[in-house]
Amino acid sequence: MTFADLVYWCGLVYGGLGLGVAAAFLVFGLDRVDRSARGSFAFRPLLVPGLVLLWPVVIANWRRLLLRGT
């Protein structure tokens, strides 16, 4: 496997997982971790690129905020 293959496939896997995390977060997580999001829907698609790019951070923060909530 060449350097390019490695970068390319890592990018695809990372992005694919990111899309999954983004969908899960928008459906199940957002309303629970941020009260200001409740009832607001138009801004949600804008979050997708950030959720895909930063999904490991999103999972960590999501967990932290949920634990703090309970």
Binding site: D34, A37, L47, P49, G50, L53, L54, V57, N61
Partner: peptide
């Protein structure tokens, strides 16, 4: 630049916290 643009919405400031 992409990460910055993608996290420019107010939500991210609250969600990540100001220092991050």
């Amino acid at each position: 630049l992409l990460v910055m643009a993608a996290t420019s919405h107010d939500f991210w400031l609250t969600f990540l916290g100001a220092p991050t």
